[in-house]
């Protein structure tokens, strides 16, 4: 058996990555490989990686009320989320709660955020004590900003079509 490489217990990747030769096995033996993986996983430690975030990295959102982070592992109450505005000004009153059922989702309730770019800093502590820290950015925009762009763009396209129609009509 080759070395088992775990990306994270319970993550959606593990079925592929948990037991490297697994994908090479004939189908009837894949289940066996999977089972072996589960047995090994039980004793192996792992870091809790960020699987999904809302708002996500690079996203532009209007008036977010919370940050929702989904990790690859169950995490402890030591897991933390901080939010920083431009110039690394910490945003106060961010209340963090680990989902008591799944223990894999963390929700940070936010105060009203003015438009700007924000950095989310998270530290996930897995049940085995392994920690991992990361950060990403999202932007809060004025409500309707994007709508205005679409409306403006739509208006331009309509005017272009109108002009084209008039040009065609004029040729006749």
């Amino acid at each position: 058996m080759r070395q088992i490489v775990l990306w994270g217990v319970g993550s959606r990747e593990w079925g592929v990555e948990c037991f490297t030769p697994h994908s090479l096995l004939p189908t009837p033996y894949k289940f066996l490989g999977l089972l072996l993986c589960l047995i090994v996983v039980h004793t192996v430690q792992a870091h809790s990686e960020l699987l999904r975030a809302e708002p996500g990295p690079g996203e532009r959102v209007v008036a977010p009320q919370e940050i929702r982070l989904r990790f690859s592992e169950m995490v402890t109450e030591e897991t933390a989320v901080w939010l920083f505005a431009d110039g690394f000004q910490q945003v106060p009153d961010v209340v963090v709660q680990v989902d008591p059922v799944s223990l894999q989702e963390v929700v940070a309730s936010l105060p009203p955020l003015p438009p700007g770019v924000y950095t989310v800093q998270w530290t996930a502590v897995a049940l085995d004590g392994h920690g991992l820290s990361g950060s990403y950015m999202f932007e809060v925009v004025e409500g309707g900003g994007r709508t205005a762009v679409w409306l403006g763009g739509g208006l331009v396209i309509m005017l272009l079509l109108l002009g084209l129609w008039q040009w065609q009509f004029g040729r006749r």
Binding site: L50, P57, G58, R60, V117, L132, S133, G134, S135, Y136, M137, F138, E139, V141, G145, R146, A148, V149, G152, G153, L155, V156, L159, L160
Partner: peptide, 25 residues
């Protein structure tokens, strides 16, 4: 109108350009 719309789109593009989709671990 076309110029105004393009300018607005450029502003959005500029904002998007500075906004990183990359996570730092």
């Amino acid at each position: 109108l076309l110029l105004a719309a393009c300018t607005r789109q450029q502003e959005v593009d500029d904002a998007m350009a500075t906004l990183s989709p990359i996570q730092v671990l």
